[in-house]
């Protein structure tokens, strides 16, 4: 995809009739810690014991159109990985709808549901933990397409070779086990495995975070080449703003389970609206910055078990006022391309 295409994507707002490839409507995911026997007993006897519930993802709306690269950014515990898993269809949501090409995946009939799931694949962060150490590369890459009948009879080797070559791996290594590869090569195996079932949509969950800079650059270049060649759509989850800035057309920022801002990449990095986004950008060390005082956001990320009331960011926010403590700000349009969840926007 050329830069001009990317610009067109980024500067086009969603029209009423447009059907995005993936759409999340009010999706939430809660994780509850089940009570043990003692706690249940205590509750029966009248003690005030409640299940601990984490709102990992809290009423998130998200749209990704075909061909787009959306970057999902946030710090640890903000729910970005959980959201990625829901989008990839490997984790059910507690609430809300996931729409694939306009259809709710929960209501799709058997065959269509299977295809919808197969078209969405995921690439994981840790290339050491996400590959079965006891399977040969050929089986890691070839098993899924064989099961799903994507390989012609007798065409297994040829198919696997093509997948490996596309991910930049030498097919001569296909009889090897994962431990015989370096981190970067393993990530390529993970990419070959995801692409082997011919997906249209890829969720990359911190896919380059564990790699050295020079290897990271190789993998990022591979992602961009594959996007062009196979017309892929990405949801790119990362805590690294530099990577996201480089790769994405649009950026979504999350904080403690909620989306706080969403805008075209250029806009986020030049004219961020939400105070959290701005402080996040200030905190990022940049190679161009020399010997300067690091800007800091005060305070720590609160526990998602017990998030602050109102706007989750208000205890750390330099601009917070009374309303922020009581009312949850809605994600509202700043203009046709830009959405932000901050009460300050109502003041102006």
């Amino acid at each position: 995809m050329s830069a001009t295409d990317a610009e067109i994507y980024a500067t086009r707002s969603f029209t009423e009739t447009e059907v995005p490839m993936i759409e999340l409507k009010g999706v939430s995911r809660r994780f509850a810690k089940k009570l043990d026997v003692a706690a249940k007993l205590a509750r029966k006897l009248g003690a005030d014991v409640k299940e601990e519930v984490v709102h990992a993802v809290d009423h998130v709306d998200l749209r990704v159109r075909k061909g787009e690269v959306v970057g999902l950014v946030g710090e640890s515990g903000c729910g970005k990985s959980t959201l990625g898993r829901i989008v990839a269809g490997i984790l059910p949501q507690s609430e809300g709808q996931v729409l694939w090409n306009g259809q709710d995946v929960a209501t799709l009939p058997g065959e269509a549901a299977r295809t919808a799931k197969l078209r969405r694949q995921m690439i994981f962060q840790d290339p050491y933990a996400s590959l079965n150490p006891r399977m040969r590369v050929a089986d890691i890459v070839g098993e899924a397409p064989q099961v799903h009948g994507l390989i012609k009879r007798g065409g297994f080797d040829e198919y696997v070779d093509e997948q490996m070559r596309r991910a930049g791996l030498d097919p001569a290594f296909k009889r090897r086990y994962p431990h015989q590869f370096s981190g970067g090569q393993r990530q390529r195996i993970g990419i070959a495995r995801a692409l082997a079932v011919q997906p249209e949509f890829i969720v990359c969950d911190e896919a380059v975070a564990a790699l050295d800079v020079s290897i990271q650059a190789q993998i990022l270049n591979l992602f961009m080449r594959l996007r062009r060649e196979l017309d892929l759509t990405y949801l790119f989850i990362s805590h690294d703003l530099g990577v996201v800035e480089h790769l994405s057309d649009r950026v979504v920022i999350m904080y403690l389970g909620r989306v706080v801002e969403e805008a075209p990449t250029e806009r986020v990095f030049t004219a961020a609206n939400h105070p959290y986004t701005r402080s996040l950008l200030d905190s990022v060390p940049r190679i161009g910055n020399r010997k300067r005082a690091f800007a800091t956001v005060k305070g720590e990320i609160p526990s998602p078990l017990n998030p602050p009331s109102g706007c989750h960011f208000h205890p750390r926010c330099p601009l917070a006022f009374d309303r922020c403590k009581v009312e949850v700000p809605k994600l509202k349009a700043v203009d046709s391309l830009h959405r932000s969840a901050c009460h300050l926007n109502d003041r102006a």
């Binding site: 370096s182 800079v213 020079s214 650059a217 961009m224 480089h246 790769l247």
Partner: peptide, 23 residues
């Protein structure tokens, strides 16, 4: 090569100047 590999420094969307091979 290392500096060229850092994404934020490069122009968006363009391929990164990668170092071939591995350590």
């Amino acid at each position: 090569g290392l500096i060229g590999s850092v994404p934020s420094r490069n122009k968006r969307g363009e391929p990164l100047r990668q170092i071939p091979g591995m350590t």
